[in-house]
Each structure stands twice: as structure tokens, then as C-alpha cells.
């Protein structure tokens, strides 16, 4: 196994553990690791993390769906406006410097860390 593949595996395992333990997608783990460890640019890291999250969330949704916990109508009610948000967010991200993307990311990481312990 190449060291690059090994690093991707460690990122996947860490994000999967975080996601499974705390019920979130794992983006706050994947994005900084891609940047700091695999030398991604900020925009590439966020784009690639979104693709990775699809796999993580889809598996979780199917597993929860089997237990009848997924409310499809309510997922669409909050998910469709979110699609509007992500279209605007990705467009906005192309128009700001990558340093600004890094700054927003750092702030969200601090918020996420605080939210974990309170």
C-alpha cells in the first residue's frame, strides 16, 4: 500500500469514526487533513471532501433508513434550501482568496471543538 493511499485510509477512518460517534458528516476532519497532510489547496480540499461525504452520509442514511428513522419529506424541506445555499457558497468561494477560505475553516474548527465539549 502506497503511503498516499495509507494517508487517505487514515483520513477515511478518522472521519468515519468521528461521523459515527457524533452523527455528523466528517467534513471538519477531512478538509484540514487534506490540506495539512496531502498538500491540497483549500478549494480542492473542500471540493474533494464534499464528494467523500456523499459516501459516508449515504451509507449512514441507508442504515438509518432500514430502521425507519429517515423522514424523507423533512430531509427535502431542509435539504432543498441547502442545495441553494451550496450553489451560492461554492460560487462565492471561487471569488475569495484561498487564505480567506482557510480563515473561515479555522473559525469553524474552533466552534466545532467548543461544541464537542460543552
Amino acid at each position: 500500500m502506497s503511503s498516499r493511499l495509507a494517508r487517505l485510509a487514515v483520513i477515511a477512518t478518522t472521519a468515519g469514526a468521528f461521523s459515527g460517534l457524533f452523527g455528523v458528516g466528517g467534513g471538519t476532519i477531512i478538509v484540514p487533513l487534506l490540506i495539512l497532510w496531502l498538500d491540497y489547496g483549500e478549494r480542492e480540499a473542500t471540493g474533494t471532501a464534499l464528494a467523500a461525504i456523499v459516501g459516508i452520509a449515504a451509507l449512514g442514511a441507508v442504515a438509518h433508513g432500514a430502521y425507519g428513522n429517515v423522514h424523507v419529506g423533512k430531509a427535502l424541506l431542509i435539504g432543498v434550501p441547502a442545495v441553494g445555499g451550496v450553489l451560492a457558497g461554492t460560487a462565492l468561494q471561487q471569488r475569495i482568496p484561498e487564505r480567506a477560505v482557510a480563515a473561515v475553516c479555522a473559525v469553524v474548527l474552533v466552534i466545532s471543538a467548543v461544541a464537542l465539549v460543552i
Binding site: 483520513i11 474533494t48 441547502a82
Partner: peptide
């Protein structure tokens, strides 16, 4: 999680259009 799938699919698709997606790495992680 289902709403996250929507955001991930549309966001990754847009980022691919902007040249910011490394699909293979994303799939491996997923």
C-alpha cells in the same frame, strides 16, 4: 444524513466544474 447527501452531490458537482475536485481521492475516502 439524507440532506447531507444532497449537499455533497450538488457541491461536489459544482466544485468539479470549478476544477476543485479530485474525484479518486474523494471516492477512496468515502
Amino acid at each position: 444524513l439524507l440532506a447531507v447527501v444532497l449537499v455533497g452531490v450538488v457541491g461536489a458537482w459544482r466544485q468539479a466544474g470549478y476544477g476543485n475536485l479530485r474525484l479518486r481521492d474523494g471516492i477512496v475516502i468515502g
